[in-house]
């Protein structure tokens, strides 16, 4: 039995996302985009590079992101578990978006296709 998501560090969560997306790249096949996640309460950023049907996570902000999503680590985990609706999070100010808004909406619906609970 793997660790529960509550015990994951922000680094491990990023690696897990990379692994899960690459195991089943179908939903990201057509995507060519760089997302940056700023985890506000941990003062930590990572980028999710989606290109040619593969996902790569890198620490910090090495490249220019198309879209930056800012939120706290607990809220980020809740969103991955489907306990927090991205739209609600946004409207209540828990989530901030910079850059391409269409891409931000897209990544939420893509991540929702992965049953993250099974993997975390």
């Amino acid at each position: 039995m793997a660790k529960a998501i509550e015990e994951y560090s922000v680094q491990e969560t990023g690696q897990k996302i990379e692994q899960v997306l690459n195991e089943n790249p179908e939903p990201i096949k057509e995507m060519n985009v760089i997302y940056q996640y700023d985890i506000t309460d941990e003062d930590y950023s990572f980028q999710l590079h989606l290109a040619d049907g593969t996902a790569k996570v890198s620490v910090g902000s090495p490249d220019k992101a198309d879209c930056t999503i800012q939120m706290s680590f607990p809220d980020f985990k809740k969103m991955l578990l489907g306990k927090l609706n991205g739209t609600v999070a946004f409207m209540s100010g828990k989530l901030k978006i910079r850059g391409d808004i269409g891409k931000a909406i897209k990544i939420e619906s893509v991540l929702r296709q992965y049953n993250v609970v099974d993997h975390l």
């Binding site: 809740k78 306990k83 927090l84 609706n85 739209t87 609600v88 409207m91 209540s92 100010g93 828990k94």
Partner: peptide
Amino acid sequence: SSFGDSDS
């Protein structure tokens, strides 16, 4: 009530 509402 979409606005300012947290996890409903």
